[in-house]
């Protein structure tokens, strides 16, 4: 693992308006993640895991404080720059897979490369390589509605990894999967982290996931209550 901090979160506060009340989802969070970490944000529902993940992924802005991702402050990025950053450097994996239903497995995985304007040969090579990583080479022409939950999530992993991003953010990636599929997915991601040195950050409260983590950041009521290195 490289000691270079790829993500730095400083005094991060995120408030949500709930009617006339204000709900503080993140309360003065300070964290840093090194390149190649396999780390989890762990905590109960409402602890601020997904909010932190969204801010790191430039999908949301903090109320105050800053998140610096690959030397760029999230707070100063406009919509276009944030989209560019997500496109080039960040892969997302969602709990509900979020595959595009009108595309085949191959096309779903190819989609981020089309946004990056890669040429056809590069795209084909990268997609087939990513599908091999997740063991779905034989399902390239299938549609999302023809896949099981585990297969769909593996496609989502391939889609996140195909562009070789520096960071992969996974929000409850095993929540909809059974134990066997969860272990399969986590093993795949662990291998990719090992081989490609991609930084993986999970938001989870699934014990199965926690067993694979190298670092566990415990969140409760928007605050970091513990940060444990599990290696």
């Amino acid at each position: 693992m490289n000691d270079f901090p790829i993500i730095k979160v400083n005094n991060l506060i995120k408030d949500y308006a709930m009617g006339k009340q204000c709900f503080r989802a993140l309360n003065d969070v300070n964290l840093s993640f090194k390149m190649g970490e396999f780390c989890g944000l762990v905590g109960p529902s409402g602890s601020g895991k997904t909010t932190l993940l969204n801010i790191i992924g430039a999908l949301d802005n903090p109320t105050s404080g800053d998140a610096i991702v690959m030397d760029k402050s999230i707070t100063v990025l406009n919509h276009k720059e944030a989209a560019k950053m997500r496109n080039e450097s960040i892969g997302f994996i969602f709990q509900t897979y979020n595959l595009l239903p009108v595309y085949s497995v191959f096309e779903n995985v190819e989609f981020p490369l089309l946004l990056l304007k890669k040429n056809k040969t590069e795209r084909e090579e990268a997609v087939m390589r990513a599908l091999e990583w997740v063991g779905l080479s034989g399902k390239a022409n299938s549609r999302p509605n023809q896949l099981s939950g585990g297969e769909s999530q593996r496609v989502a992993v391939a889609r996140a990894m195909v562009k070789l991003p520096k960071i992969v953010l996974a929000d409850e990636p095993t929540a909809n999967l059974d134990a066997a599929n969860s272990h399969n997915i986590l093993k795949t991601m662990q291998n990719l982290n090992h081989e490609l040195k991609t930084t993986f950050i999970f938001a989870t409260h699934d014990e199965k996931v926690i067993g694979y983590l190298h670092r566990k950041v415990m969140l409760n009521d928007g605050k970091v209550i513990d940060d444990v290195n599990l290696n």
Partner: peptide
């Protein structure tokens, strides 16, 4: 809506 969010997360601009 969810698809719109996914497209944005994948890097499409608004």
């Amino acid at each position: 809506r969810k698809e719109i969010g996914t497209l944005m997360a994948l890097g499409m601009t608004r």
